[in-house]
């Protein structure tokens, strides 16, 4: 006698009333958000057509004007320097914040909570807002941009460094503790080497993010290429603005390619 084949299970699990309610709530949120904020399609279409009209923005942008390539290049270099300096300072300062925010390494739960709160605050406030705050503190110019990038990077790298240390193998740390190593000795000798690949990847992503961010910081007066871009738009020199945008794009792509290469080599 052959055994009866077992029937396959139903394709979908039956939904409970609560599941239906949650689904309806999510759908309602999406539809109401689209209705309240999404632009009407005909308006978008008319706007796009205007960009390409004889007096439109895109028409005036072409061909890009590279006649001021030398001063723009210097500003681009300043942008890169702001990004590197801000990122470097931010990454260095992110390390102690990350240590204090890590369960196993923090000296006290209250300190851990405090460090996590500061990291979250630094990450949540946009870098443009930090730039405005630092312009008030140190005045217009690249110094405000460097400080804004630094604070933003403490928030970004602090979180990822802490996660990497949290996930590292506790075995070598226990062994160092058992040897009688100091906490600092244990962290530098056992935690950092284990987290090196993760730290490197985070640092390179932070650099890419800094370069992209530093270009925009000039729009609020925090130095770099953004200042040139704002002036070009203000003076309706759209062809020069396109040249600046293309040079920024080249810089960002170069940094991304470079950091990608370093990541592949190191990790």
């Amino acid at each position: 006698m052959t055994a009866m084949p077992i029937p396959p299970p139903p394709r979908f699990r039956p939904l409970r009333l609560l599941n239906y309610l949650v689904l309806l709530l999510v759908l309602g949120l999406i539809i109401s958000s689209l209705a309240a904020t999404a632009p009407p399609l005909d308006k978008v279409w008319r706007g796009v057509m205007r960009l390409f009209s004889p007096s439109g923005l895109f028409t005036q942008m072409f061909p890009p004007d590279f006649s001021r390539i030398v001063p723009i290049s210097w500003k681009l270099l300043e942008t890169l320097q702001m990004a590197v300096a801000g990122c470097f300072l931010g990454l260095i300062l992110a390390v102690p914040f990350a240590i204090l925010a890590t369960d196993r390494l923090s000296p006290h739960p209250v300190v851990r909570l405090g460090a996590r709160a500061i990291i979250a605050l630094f990450r949540t406030v946009p870098d443009l807002v930090w730039a405005i705050i630092f312009i008030i503190i140190v005045g217009l110019g690249p110094a405000a941009g460097v400080l804004a990038i630094m604070v933003d990077k403490i928030g970004f790298a602090g979180r990822f460094f802490a996660e990497a240390m949290e996930e590292s193998d506790p075995g070598p740390q226990d062994a160092m503790r058992a040897i009688g190593a100091s906490k600092l000795g244990m962290i530098v000798s056992a935690v950092f080497p284990a987290c090196l690949p993760s730290f490197t990847a985070t640092s390179l992503f932070a650099l890419e993010k800094s370069v992209r961010g530093s270009a925009a910081l000039g729009l609020v007066g925090a130095g770099g290429i953004g200042v040139e871009l704002k002036v070009a738009f203000d003076l309706f020199n759209y062809d020069e603005a396109l040249a600046i945008i293309l040079m920024m794009l080249a810089l960002v792509i170069a940094v991304e390619q470079g950091s990608g290469w370093i990541r592949r080599k190191l990790i």
Binding site: G171, P172, A175, M176, S189, A194, P197
Partner: peptide, 13 residues
């Protein structure tokens, strides 16, 4: 006190 662990617990890399 020297401890030899079941898993050697050396620092990698």
């Amino acid at each position: 006190v020297g401890i030899v662990w079941q898993r050697h617990n050396l620092v990698p890399r």
